[in-house]
Design a protein around this nucleic acid. Structure first.
Lengths: 136, 136
DNA sequence: CAGCATCCTACGCGATACTG
DNA sequence: CAGTATCGCGTAGGATGCTG
């Protein structure tokens, strides 16, 4: 039963984190935004509704699995809506919901901060690497 | 050589993504912020300088490995500065740099959006789950 | 006290193949 | 076309034990 201890500790830690996340809206939001592809999908959809295949092409580099998964999550979160046109072959369009559109200004604020300050970050990184680089 | 193909494809995809990330400041910023603990550390440091052990206690739930790793990354990115007081035992303080402080309003904007809208997201989730719940 | 090195497991995600 | 199901690797990250 000693083997359980490790598992138990894991569970405990996970639950602590989950409990935290559950009560903290900003962490949940960050968890969402932080998802590699969510922000890209949002940006891609900002210009208007897009078909699945359009998104796949626009967000070049995303796997089909992740694209679907991302869109599903976003749909579940009420950020995008999914419309199926039962033609042959099927056509599926995604568009931002009002909630999703409401998120865009925030995303742009992030983008703006990044564009202004990321070169400072870059410089800091290089300085740091130079400093600690010579004693490995 | 057929075995290489998979690896090559992986490399290619990874490089596509990396190439993208490398050129896109906002993605880099999101990658940073999205880190589970960065935002928590920033928040913890917003109130002023903190010792390592204080941070460990404040951000309850973080492992020592992740705390150190997070602080290192943030230091490298120029968001926090690290001051060692060579007493016995050692004392290490972390504090926000101007750059780090400059990030706080953005973080607060995120928090604010979350507090306003996350209940909508929550509601959307429950509605979604109710809808798709009965046909597994 | 503040951290680094090691080990090991769970899970994210890409690749692949199959459906309506 | 727009997905779902399955497999397998890579790695993030927690646990543990050692240093100055």
């Amino acid at each position: 039963m000693a083997t359980q201890t490790a598992a138990e500790r894991r569970e405990e830690a996970r639950q602590r984190y989950n409990a935290y996340v559950a009560t903290c809206p900003s962490r949940k939001l960050l968890d969402t935004l932080s998802d590699k592809w969510v922000s890209l999908a949002l940006t891609a959809l900002a210009g208007g509704p897009r078909r699945y295949s359009e998104l796949a092409r626009t967000i070049a580099g995303v796997s089909q699995k992740m694209l679907t998964q991302t869109l599903r999550t976003m749909e579940r979160d009420g950020l995008v809506s999914r419309t199926v046109t039962p033609s042959v072959p099927v056509r599926v369009d995604y568009r931002l919901t009002p909630l999703g559109e409401d998120l865009m200004p925030l995303l742009e604020a992030i983008k703006r901060w990044a564009e202004i300050h990321m070169e400072d970050v870059e410089a800091a990184r290089q300085a740091y690497d130079r400093r600690s680089g010579h004693r490995p």
